[in-house]
Design a protein around this nucleic acid. Sequence first.
DNA 1: CGCTATCTTGAATCCCTTCAAGTCGCGTGG
DNA 2: CCACGCGACTTGAAGGGATTCAAGATAGCG
Lengths: 242, 242
Amino acid sequence: MTLIFNEREKCGSCPIRHRAVCARCDDDELARLEEIKSYKTFEAGQPIIWRGDELVTFASVVTGIASLSRTMEDGRTQVVGLLLPSDFIGRPGREYVDFDVTAVTEVTLCQFQRKPFEKLVEEVPHISQRMMEMALDELNAAREWMVLLGRKTAREKIATFLEMVVRRSTIPNQAVAQYSLPLTREEIANFLGLTLETISRQLSAMKKDGIIEFEGRRNFFIKNLAALHEASGDDADGGIIV
Amino acid sequence: MTLIFNEREKCGSCPIRHRAVCARCDDDELARLEEIKSYKTFEAGQPIIWRGDELVTFASVVTGIASLSRTMEDGRTQVVGLLLPSDFIGRPGREYVDFDVTAVTEVTLCQFQRKPFEKLVEEVPHISQRMMEMALDELNAAREWMVLLGRKTAREKIATFLEMVVRRSTIPNQAVAQYSLPLTREEIANFLGLTLETISRQLSAMKKDGIIEFEGRRNFFIKNLAALHEASGDDADGGIIV
DNA sequence: CGCTATCTTGAATCCCTTCAAGTCGCGTGG
DNA sequence: CCACGCGACTTGAAGGGATTCAAGATAGCG
């Protein structure tokens, strides 16, 4: 189910048209973006940009999932964010890339060359406004995640992660909702600041407790949503918004 | 050494004039800010805004240090950021406050009423540009901190924190540089995702290892900067930028 | 159908926390 | 100016949650 994007695909029919950096643009502004954009696809597992690379392109994720991470010299890795469709890659004003970006699934990007894009950011308030809004949303999400990393137990971390998967899932409310883990156990571990064995053990424990049920390694059902939320450590209506 | 700020203190002589949200403003734009600003001082320990509060004012920290934190229902708290002079408080576009803001030392704020400030953000690109820049800087800092919280050991966390204190210290390079911890052991613990006992033990260990030396409870010297950096787990030139 | 990466489970270990008992430094008041 | 008192800090010992190391199971691919 690889989607094909032509170089001059019209923005009007773009799946992320109303959530990406271009969300507030009018037709004229879209036309200017169309002039400088190009699509590029990465296979699952492929690096997209690496820390220290010179920052030559910005991009929006159109389809697929990418991870933003940092690896220490001795190999310890922390995932600091997941990039979903409509999320932005790159930081205007920086010369170099700060974190590694890796394709988790197959990923299609809508890329912009740096210079012309920065020019647009300066000239088109609808773009800079939307970028600021997105940056502030991500800042909030990062801070919520800091609470998880610094203070939550393994079980709370995993429950929070599962809730996030459920909340972000685009699947509409069905009679029996089935969800799919977007990451391997190891990737989840690197996102939650744990080891893959701990992820596996805690998922088994939650299965034994009747909170979730697995069908294969990736697909799962929520058997007890209240218990899942209870286990997340978040209060009634808070939680990760991302 | 309490500084007195008059209600109509001129921005031109403001200590954070060139780093705060107003950094890029010209004289006309400053004049518009001066119309809607007012100073307010909080004593050490006092809450400034609370999670869930209606967001009625934005502010820049002029002097002092404030903390941004979240406390879970059972009392576990995580500090997600320190607010130093020139840092901004509040999030345009939100109705409610997301994190607790507390005065760590005596704090002076330059406050703006919400509506008129949001209007200025829309109309003055110099403000929105600077705000985006600051938001992106903070996002980067938050992500670096996520690596610390998720993957570093207690010793690495504390070494990184001490390096941050040194880096942010406004003290010019002196023959023998003395620094001061801006936080209590408990506050440091809540910032690093540890307990206050662990902070105390690790500081003692680093003292025994000849890396640092204390004079009283807050003041310290770096005896071996290379060893401190070595202990931080960061590679040569990376680290927290904040 | 078989192979391999991914995952599960077990056992031992360890780092950090928890609980507890002091000690120290600093500001206040005598 | 010094003594006092309390909050902040230090240190110790025990406990526990997560990691590490290791062996096997399973799913999903070719």
